[in-house]
């Protein structure tokens, strides 16, 4: 579930490319990048879609998609 008042896009992570290096973590102003031992999560409720993380990623693992193209399950 995304915040309907705000989101037109969503940042997604391609886990086949992501090296779990954490390069995107400090540049994210609202701290929406959650680095786990074996994968990266993006907190879409916190993310402001500022897109700073996308070019920073050394492997191009982050990308944006239209929000209405994705159904997210709240966990």
């Amino acid at each position: 579930m995304t915040n309907p008042s705000r989101s037109h896009i969503l940042i997604m992570v391609n886990r086949d490319r992501c090296g779990i290096c954490g390069c995107c973590v400090p540049v994210c102003p609202p701290d929406a990048m959650v680095l786990h031992d074996a994968h990266l999560d993006i907190d879409h409720d916190t993310c402001t879609e500022c897109l700073k993380c996308i070019p920073v990623c050394p492997t191009n693992a982050l990308y944006q998609v239209p929000a209405d193209s994705v159904l997210l399950r709240r966990t």
Binding site: V25, P26, V27
Partner: peptide, 25 residues
């Protein structure tokens, strides 16, 4: 490290600007 969470949680301003950040491989 660069992805320091402790500083953020303690309320310190640690976010680097993009022009002051190296992406490395």
């Amino acid at each position: 490290g660069a992805e320091s969470q402790i500083g953020r949680w303690a309320g310190m301003k640690t976010t680097p600007r993009l022009e002051e950040y190296y992406s490395a491989a």
